[in-house]
Design a protein around this nucleic acid. Structure first.
Lengths: 226, 226
DNA sequence: CGTCTGAAGATTGTTGACAATCGACAGCGA
DNA sequence: TCGCTGTCGATTGTCAACAATCTTCAGACG
């Protein structure tokens, strides 16, 4: 498969496309923080390219909501306030509800099996108090549902929202709230999918995200002014 | 206000940003058709710029799902097959359901008033058999609901999906199906919002789009192979 | 007659340089 | 001392040119 990889690498050779996920990684890892200005020259120097591909990558990321373009002043990593984060959660809830509904209608046996396995593993992690294991399992669980929905656009849009949520200043609070043990909800979700009950699946998935939104709203407004 | 406009024009001066909606218009108007290849030189010549801003605009549009980038071969106007169009409809239904729910919770009196006015006008257009009037009213009605939802992201994502749907080859069929007089559904939607009933609003809005999806699926597969 | 090879033309991907704009700072005046 | 103005450095926006790649098409070969 190394030949395939090499071909794929050569195929995807347009520096802008290659650079974009790298800049995304820099944002997600915290190397560049929300509100920071991005210097095109510095990035070009870092990646050993000219500014053209950098600008292309940034324009693509702007459409994805990760950065904001300010004319004649450069691109800034977007910084989300509470209201915007809540708006994202609402959209996310709508998408996730639909994902549950579609999964209930279309999930294959192996999809359901995988979901049940993940819930079981999360149960074990919760019992052991091992949140280090729980968190990635939780991510994998949500992604497995999106995959089971059979709707690629749905999955892509959802992933885009998750990325944007990383730009919320007080996201640690959200993550902390997310660790709120909600595996009972997860089990209800899988049960609805396994029962092929689209309505129940839609409701449980939707409510699952909306409860996170409630926790987000209830969290102390610990975001500093810019 | 001409001074303000001039200032706004100067402010937004980055050719890429200015060019992007222009290319969109060319696609929406059918000047460029789905599947067509876009020649950067031709566009640059047409707009009197160099290829740089053109490429930036295209990269942004690619993120919006209007065009597809094929390495070393150029950008193509995306062409949607039936399955992809259905996937878009599903996401659209999810978003629109959420929009109805939010509108039921947050719409102002003037929002509801506007919605009722639009439904009344559509009623009149239907009675008169004036579909030429009905169609833009229908668009305005949907947009008014998105505005009443108070969620800008929701409105933006919805608008993006509508644009993408224009790329479906047999979209005339969809539009024809859309002209299927559904003003009773519209009235039910507004009633649910006016009654401040989020659940009913969510359901009516969601079903409204899903019924369009059913019509789309039922339509004869009149799309030619590429 | 069909297929393969190779060169020509066209188009994309990328670069470095130039012009325009913005923010900061020193200097001047009240 | 405070506010205004003009200049300087830094950065963005844009361009024209170069290199690499792909497509096309003519011609040779089996």
């Amino acid at each position: 498969m190394s030949a395939h990889e090499a071909i794929a690498f050569l195929k995807s050779r347009s520096l802008g496309v290659l650079i974009e996920p790298e800049i995304e990684r820099m944002i997600m890892s915290g190397e560049i923080k929300p509100g920071d200005r991005i210097n095109e020259n510095a990035l070009a120097l870092r990646f050993g390219t000219s500014r053209g591909p950098i600008r292309e990558a940034l324009r693509s990321m702007e459409a994805g909501g990760l950065v904001a373009l300010v004319p004649n002043r450069g691109v800034y990593v977007r910084s989300l306030d509470l209201a915007t984060a809540c708006a994202i959660y609402e959209v996310r809830a709508a998408l996730f509800g639909m994902a549950g509904r579609c999964a209930a209608e279309r999930a294959g046996a192996e999809d359901i099996c995988r979901l049940e396995t993940l819930v079981a593993e999360m149960d074990r992690a919760v019992d052991a108090g091992d949140f280090e294991t729980y968190y990635p399992l939780n991510l994998a669980f949500h992604q497995a549902i999106l995959a089971a929905s059979g709707n690629h656009l749905l999955a892509a849009q959802y992933a885009s929202l998750i990325k944007q949520l990383h730009l919320y200043r007080a996201r640690s609070l959200v993550q902390g709230g997310g660790l709120h043990v909600s595996n009972q909800e997860h089990r209800a979700m899988v049960d609805a999918i396994a029962a092929r009950d689209p309505e129940a699946a839609s409701r449980t998935h939707f409510d699952h995200v909306m409860r996170s939104l409630d926790r987000l709203r209830a969290a102390p407004a610990a975001h500093a002014a810019t």
